[in-house]
Nucleic acid binder design. Structure first.
Length: 268
DNA sequence: CGCTAGTCCTGTCTGC
DNA sequence: TGCAGACAGGACTAGC
């Protein structure tokens, strides 16, 4: 699914077309709306002035203080389509009709994603951990959240209440950059390894944003274009292929129910 | 509290 | 070609 770099890319796409005046939000499947602090009708005639991201969530700020929050789950897409193009792809669950020659579509085959209509986003996002690209996300913070944890480091990187925005792809890539096996107990990392991991996380996320995210299958950006970072992945999805550093075939195993990709030789 | 396994969905790929 | 089963980028929960 879209992880931090993919959601950031969509955010950047949408920022270029602001402001967006909403004519109507058409909800084509009720269960996509996860919770609601206000009625859909309140959105009519309002304008979206600001788009932001928190973890893997995309936040559209409406000018009367309301918020539209999307999470794209595994297969969600949020993209613009010309207004006169009435033919819809399957699984388009939300259409935001705009005062412009295009509309904003939310498409999600697996429906793990969803939409929240919120008045107070602070409490909604209070359960999320630090943003990995922020200055606050430091080796010191990482050391603090690893301390005493017996779970595999990979599991910890995916825990959104500790670090918000990392998913399976970038967790594997960051661990490879840092030379740390994904099944290492979190508590067993040295300070040096923690520093390397902190750098690795920031590095891989920043680079992926530069390449507009990773498209394995489903992901598309706000213009419905695939990303390019899949060409730069070093371990994810490369089971049995040569390690980019040492040439040995890469390994794959299951950690916390998720597939993990790593090099037996380069990661300790 | 920490952690694991199961669950929600559909689409795609693999192997028989 | 058909079909069953595994698997997929996430996150919540029940239960130990």
């Amino acid at each position: 699914m879209p992880e931090l770099p993919e959601v950031e890319t969509i955010k950047n796409n949408l920022q270029e077309i602001l402001p967006l005046r909403i004519k109507e939000l058409e909800l084509r499947r009720e269960d996509i709306l996860r919770s609601r602090d206000y009625a859909l009708k309140e959105l009519a005639g309002q304008s979206i002035e600001e788009v932001s991201r928190r973890g893997k969530y995309l936040i559209l700020a409406v000018d009367n203080g309301l918020f539209l929050v999307f999470h794209l789950g595994m297969s969600g897409r949020l993209y613009i389509q010309e207004e006169e193009l009435t033919l819809l792809e399957p699984h388009v669950h939300v259409i935001i009709h705009l005062d412009k020659p295009f509309k904003l579509l939310y498409q999600d085959a697996r429906r793990f994603g969803g939409l929240w209509l919120l008045k107070d986003i602070d409490s909604f996002f209070s359960r999320l951990g630090k943003e990995p690209l922020s200055e606050e996300f430091s080796p010191r913070y990482l050391a603090q959240i690893l301390k005493g944890r017996q779970t595999a480091i990979k599991n910890l990187l995916l825990n959104q209440s500790l670090i918000s925005g990392l998913g399976n792809i970038y967790a594997d890539e960051a661990l490879f950059i840092a030379g740390i096996r994904p099944d290492r107990k979190a508590d067993s990392l040295s300070l040096r390894e923690i520093e390397g991991l902190c750098c690795g996380i920031k590095e891989v996320l920043a680079k992926s944003i530069k390449y507009r995210g990773t498209t394995f299958r489903d992901y598309r950006d706000g213009r419905r274009q695939p990303g390019e970072f899949q060409k730069h992945l070093q371990v994810y999805g490369r089971f049995n292929q040569a390690c980019p550093t040492c040439g040995q075939p890469l390994k794959r195993s299951r950690i916390g129910g998720r597939s993990s990709h790593y090099c037996d030789k380069c990661q300790q």
